[in-house]
Design a protein around this nucleic acid. Structure first.
Length: 962
RNA sequence: GCGGAUAUGGCGAAAUUGGUAGACGUGCCAGAUUUAGGAUCUGGUGCCGCAAGGCGUGUGGGUUCGAGUCCCUCUAUCCGCACCA
């Protein structure tokens, strides 16, 4: 075989051969289709549920299949997870890497309302598009495990878990969820006495075991209901009239629905809830065990919002007492007290008034006749203000005096009782003791309404604003004067508890999760009503299949769409619950179903669950921080309590991939004309910037012919060009969206450069977790890298020509540098530097003109997670079986190849580099010091001064301190 | 207001974790080859300067022989929460 040096082969062929063909080269389009088909036909990436190998579970947050398909931003995380999967397979792990679809959701239903097309149909089509696009990227998913949340075989188990929640209660003594039968046993034995359960204590009625025995079935169920972990209750909800459904807090942004942007209002409605509050503390504790981004953990901590403080009861002063001057608080009277919650009980002597939420139940009772009209006006005004206004307006001070007084339980002083909307009904007790000296809101309120402000520590500076400091010693505080914060808090809580006027108390901000949507396209809640009481559908009757209806709107009477289902009754007798589950129901446990997706007997087989346990690496967007990621943890903890899962947490390591932003291009139309002026000259005219489709722009230069064809109105457009005759666009980075014409489709890029190039480029773009702009220009760089790589294996005429010669030291060094770097970086999930390392290696090997198997075979293995199609192709050309590269041995690096013969040492005086000296790599620090001392280096630069010390950094540099 | 992040060439970025800042890629400049090139190859490219040299990692300070990296200050941008007592 004759060899020509590289490129000239083409031209020789051209000139000597009249019927020349294009130079054969790397053609990803053929290679990629071939290998994708092979992987699919041979089920190359099927994972076994039993193996000698250690398991590794890599999961992407599964997508909602939207109609628009994927743009280049979507696959970013999928590419990273696929690289990890393939890498871990090479490192000897049994890898579970599945994909599925979160296929219930609002867009398909909105589309159905508009067009009458069944959401199942739309969803099915969209999933088809997604699978085609995902497959064309060459992901190593085990497609046999695909799940879809809208599949009855899947949501059967979503409903099953709901019923488990419905049939469980949370025992605070054992600190875990238990089946209701343990509760029923307690009722039968001691009645409701001594039961400590999660939930609203006021809803838990008290009865004796004797009464329990006499209860009817209905009475029993009613008594049990408030203990259930899935329960129905009148709840203030975010009602969205535009969508005709309630939304969870994380589906509401700035008072508008996240989907659709419709206004949202507060409304009291009967709702199904999940008692996530029972798990608040455990959800908080568990965060410490997780390898998650700090931002997400912190968001969850804030969302849970644990605060440690105290509840204090303020007695209400009788009108009669006012004159009687009865200084001895009589605790035996049954008169109502006002319970407040505070995290700063130490400041109680500074509590100079009380503020209740306008919705507080005692407001009516406390309002004196003189104040009645005033208070009613205030309450009405509050109601009129939407939630949104209330949030936006935190500056205005407003409130109203009830006319009544309470008594500060420690100072004994009477304090005015006010209402104000800065106090929230839903948090704590809906009432606060106002300490103007220590809390800025109270301070502003006190100033505005002329209420007293009393300093409580000697360190407080309160002339202009409240001072919440915990420094200093207490003053004006009889019982705790002279004490520090810690001592005072401790002493006060003891005092309160001893006198029955308060107690230490921990509060959480997190609310129970509302679990019903008045919508069609979701899992039916498996509940039916008999005699006005909710019953769970029997397990044997699951799944409760979503019935067909004629229209996807609410009924004329305002019932949810399921009210339209004909003859839809349990056992033909009982009405079903008409709301469906929220979007997050199916996604709260899908990671478990992947472990054993076809199991018809159980939500996940016991053995499969014990083997896979939980997700080792979870990739997805940060937008799910307080929604999906919290709900999943809650469900997992619950399943753990029932002994149904093994691991403590569902997702051990989490990475949030950053968004890829669009790079929008602009053209500048001179106002009132059809003339467009290039960026460089636009300042000479009055112009309007218009988005131009990035697909007809190359390196920010518009293809003017394509531009004229792009839109009819531009067909006769005229242009003022740069002096070099091109039209240059303006650039801005924005979110990718159709309306900005900056969407880049992966399909087009795969067509042109291949999936391998796209995968590499997305990783090369920058750190995975960062937001970064897309720029198609860069694609040619990685495409060039792949061509260069291909040419290492096909140095002439495009023929495969790898030799069996022994590798030279320089070649081995290039290879092993890459092996080490690639391995180090992928363990840190640093994909961009990994790709760079591969590029450098190929550049080096090209420069060395290396075509040797000893180097190129390990290189293919190294490459295979990143550019799997090309790697498979080369692997087979190297003589291996098709599809076997995923079982190849991962090359280990050998230190000895990396050792340098000589090392260049920059020699610096006082940190300033003066000269570079060369030493053998084996030289020790002492050798180098001696050599520098012996050289004329010091003589030349020391200016008569002596070297004070030598700093030799092995392999790096020498610094002489003078 | 509270919390989390980020800041390095025209652009995306790298820096063995305290040791010659700007690797790799793009873009740009020059050259080779080609009828042509959105092809391929070679060289150059942080800024100022003809050069010697000087200056350079958001700002200002500090520690150190030596700081993109550690400490303090301030600023800007992004994200999340927001009257949570």
């Amino acid at each position: 075989m004759r060899r020509f040096p590289g490129i000239s082969a083409y031209f020789r062929q051209l000139s000597t051969n009249s019927n020349w063909k294009p130079m054969p080269g790397y053609s990803p389009q053929q290679i990629e289709k071939k290998w994708q088909a092979h992987w699919k036909d041979h089920r190359t990436f099927r994972a076994d549920n039993a193996s000698e190998k250690p398991k590794y579970y890599v999961l992407d947050m599964f997508p909602y299949p939207s109609g628009a398909g994927l743009h280049v931003g979507h696959p970013l995380g999928y590419i990273a997870s696929d690289i990890v999967s393939r890498y871990k397979r090479l490192r000897g792990f049994n890898v579970l890497h599945p994909m599925g679809f979160d296929s219930f959701g609002l867009p398909a239903e909105q589309y159905a309302i508009q067009t009458g097309q069944h959401p199942a149909l739309t969803t099915e089509q969209n999933i088809g598009t997604y699978i085609r696009q995902l497959s064309s990227l060459g992901f190593s998913y085990d497609w046999s495990r695909e799940v879809r949340t809208s599949d009855p075989a899947y949501y059967k188990w979503t409903q099953w878990i709901f019923l488990k929640l419905f049939n469980s209660w949370y025992n605070l003594d054992t600190n875990k969820a238990e089946p209701l039968k343990t509760l029923l046993a307690k009722f039968a034995e001691n009645g409701s006495d001594g039961i400590r359960a999660a939930g609203d204590e006021e809803e838990h009625h008290s009865f004796t075991n004797g009464q329990w025995k006499l209860f009817s079935e209905k009475q029993r169920l009613q008594a049990v209901h408030p203990y259930r972990l899935a329960y129905q209750q009148d709840t203030y909800v975010n009602w969205c009239p535009g969508l005709g459904t309630v939304l969870s807090n994380d589906e509401v942004k700035d008072g508008l629905s996240e989907r659709g942007g419709f206004p949202v209002e507060r409304r009291l409605m009967p709702q199904w809830n999940l008692r996530i509050t029972a798990y608040a503390d455990r959800l908080l504790q568990g965060l410490d065990t997780l390898d998650w981004p700090d931002a997400v953990k912190e968001m969850q901590r804030n969302w849970i919002g644990k605060s440690i403080g105290a509840e204090v009861e303020f007695r209400i002063q009788n009108p009669a007492e006012e004159s009687a001057e009865d200084q001895q608080p009589t605790t035996n009277t049954q008169q109502p007290t006002i319970k407040v919650y505070t995290t700063r009980v130490d400041t109680i002597y500074g509590a100079t008034f009380l503020v209740l939420a306008p919705e507080h139940e005692l407001v009516a009772e406390l309002t004196t006749p003189e104040q009645k009209e005033h208070i009613q006006d205030y309450i009405d005004a509050t109601k009129r203000r939407s939630e949104r206004d209330r949030m936006a307006d935190t500056k205005t001070v407003s409130g109203a005096f009830t006319g009544s007084f309470g008594i500060n339980p420690l100072s004994g002083e009477p304090v005015q009782i006010w209402i104000a909307d800065y106090v929230l009904a839903g948090y704590g007790t809906g009432a606060v003791m106002a300490v103007p000296s220590g809390d800025q809101r109270d301070y502003v309120f006190a100033q505005h309404f002329g209420l007293p402000i009393i300093a409580v520590t000697d360190a407080q500076q309160i002339e202009e604003q409240a001072d919440p400091t915990k420094e200093g010693r207490y003053i004006n505080s009889e019982l705790i004067n002279g004490l520090t914060y810690k001592e005072a808090t401790h002493k006060l809580i003891q005092h309160l508890e001893a006198n029955g006027i308060g107690k230490g108390k921990t509060n959480f901000r997190i609310r129970d999760a509302i679990f019903g949507r008045q919508r069609y396209w979701g899992e039916p809640i498996p509940i039916y009503y008999k005699d006005g009481v909710a019953y769970g559908v029997a397990e044997a009757d699951l799944p409760l299949v979503l019935p067909e209806i004629d229209e996807y709107k609410p009924t004329e009477t305002g019932e949810p769409p399921l009210g339209r289902a004909k003859d839809w009754k349990y056992k033909g007798l009982y009405d079903y619950e008409l709301s469906t589950m929220p979007g997050w129901a199916g996604s709260s446990w899908y990671y478990l179903r992947y472990m054993d997706p076809h199991n018809a007997e159980r939500f996940v087989g016991e053995e499969a669950e014990r083997y896979w346990q939980n997700v080792d690496l979870y990739l997805g967007g940060a937008e799910h921080a307080t929604g999906h990621l919290l709900y999943s943890r809650f469900w997992h903890l619950f399943l753990k309590d029932l002994g149904l899962v093994t691991a403590n947490e569902p997702f051990q390591k989490l990475i949030n991939q950053g968004m890829i932003l669009g790079r929008s291009n602009f053209v500048y139309r001179i106002n009132g004309t059809n003339t467009f002026v290039t960026l460089g000259k636009k300042d000479q005219h009055e112009t309007t910037a218009l988005h131009v489709d990035v697909n007809i722009v190359e390196n920010d230069v518009v293809d003017l012919e394509a531009f004229k064809k792009w839109r009819e109105e531009y067909a006769n457009a005229e242009f003022i060009l740069e002096d070099n005759g091109t039209y240059v666009c303006g650039v801005e980075v924005e979110k990718m969206s159709k309306s900005k014409y900056n969407v880049v489709s992966p399909d087009v890029l795969i067509e042109r450069y291949g999936a391998d190039a796209l995968r590499l480029y997305e990783m090369f773009l920058g750190p995975l977790e960062q937001y970064k702009p897309w720029n198609t220009n860069g694609m040619s760089g990685v495409a060039g890298f792949l061509k260069k790589l291909w040419r290492l294996y096909h140095p002439q005429d495009g023929d495969f020509a790898v030799t069996d010669e022994a590798a030279a030291p320089a070649e081995l060094k290039a290879l092993h540098k890459a092996i080490r770097k690639v391995e180090e970086d992928i363990e840190k999930f640093s994909f961009n530097t990994t790709v760079s390392a591969l590029m450098i290696t190929v550049n080096e090997l090209t420069a060395l003109d290396c075509h040797k198997r000893a180097v190129l075979e390990p290189l293919v293995v190294l490459l295979s997670p990143y550019a799997p199609h090309l790697a498979e192709e080369l692997w087979v050309e190297l003589g291996h079986a098709a599809g076997s590269i995923s079982q190849a041995a991962y090359p280990g690096f050998r230190e000895e190849y990396l050792v340098e013969d000589t090392v260049n040492y920059p020699v610096a005086i006082n940190g300033k580099v003066r000269e570079t000296l060369q030493f053998p790599a084996t030289a020790t620090a002492a050798d180098i010091e001696a050599a520098v001392r012996a050289s004329d280096f010091l003589v030349r630069f020391a200016d008569g001064k002596e070297a004070r010390k030598f700093i030799v950094v092995p392999g790096r540099m020498v610094n002489v301190v003078v």
